[in-house]
């Protein structure tokens, strides 16, 4: 671990002292070969994230944060280096094994929600369980459970088109939670939402992190959203520029009462 920067070393010591390391990137490079030019999306990433952390990834577009998320989400493999997830080097796995890891270990939340249209909330939530060969009764029970967890118990049979943006994102979170993932990956989850709904989503994330111990990695370019996390990692030009603990962390449950509701806006 000679390449680890002093800052990273410091942060690891703070969090990883008590809890085991969940994610570890060692000298990760990602180079896209576009024929005439080679795009160096990641230029040597060394990073570790412990179980139970809530990390915000920041950076301008082109900084490499999307590439980093793709690798973390097991949607892609690095050109060089190793990505360990719970001790397994996922850079060595084949596509089927990666799909299995996405299914069992990871949950995705996207900016555009990415729900299946003309499919009810309940069926959208069940989707990961179908690919995990969960028994139908168990699947139904778990789907009810996670929808209740995000406060949508009474919206199970609604289609995405009948739900508001915030509700759709909560269905997406419920879907991500379906198979008891170790990590929740959220790619600009509040990008399409108004500020109050954004905070509501952050409230759900903070509760999942605190109450269920789910590790959260959140990509955002809004710094006030990043402040809901415990740790902020900033990317620039394919490298980690800053890695720091959040001081004066925002707590969504405290912020929410001070925000105007939609109804008040209309008044």
């Amino acid at each position: 671990m000679s390449t680890v920067s002093p800052i990273l070393e410091n942060s690891r010591n703070v969090v990883a002292a008590a809890t085991p390391v969940l994610i570890e990137f060692q000298g990760v490079y990602k180079i896209y070969d576009l024929g005439e030019v080679q795009v160096h999306a990641l230029r040597g990433i060394d990073l570790s994230i412990a179980k139970g952390e809530f990390v915000a990834i920041m950076g301008a577009s082109g900084s490499g944060k999307s590439t980093f998320m793709n690798l973390l989400g097991c949607l892609d493999r690095p050109t060089r280096g190793s990505c360990f997830l719970e001790g397994t080097d996922v850079s060595q796995l084949d596509k089927t094994e990666l799909a299995r890891i996405r299914n069992r270990k990871l949950g995705f939340v996207f900016q555009g929600f990415n729900l299946l249209s003309r499919t009810t909330a309940l069926e959208n939530v069940e989707l990961p369980a179908l690919y995990a060969h969960m028994k139908p009764e168990e699947r139904m029970a778990r789907a009810h459970e996670v929808l209740a967890l995000v406060g949508l118990a009474n919206r199970e049979h609604h289609f995405p088109s009948q739900l508001s943006g915030g509700q759709q994102q909560r269905v997406a979170i419920a879907r991500a939670l379906m198979n008891h993932p170790a990590i929740l990956l959220a790619d600009e989850p509040t990008g399409n939402l108004d500020s109050r709904t954004s905070v509501e989503i952050m409230d759900i994330f903070q509760r999942l992190n605190a109450e269920q111990g789910i590790t959260l990695v959140l990509v955002t370019h809004e710094s006030d959203i990043a402040r809901f996390a415990r740790r902020i990692i900033t990317f620039r030009d394919g490298r980690i520029r800053r890695d720091e603990q959040v001081t004066g962390r925002a707590i969504a449950a405290e912020v929410l009462p001070n925000l105007p509701t939609v109804d008040e806006d209309q008044d």
């Binding site: 990415n114 990961p128 690919y131």
Partner: peptide, 11 residues
């Protein structure tokens, strides 16, 4: 979407 939530190529 299906692939992201864990569908394999075979699925």
């Amino acid at each position: 979407i299906r692939m992201a939530v864990g569908a394999t190529e075979k699925d």
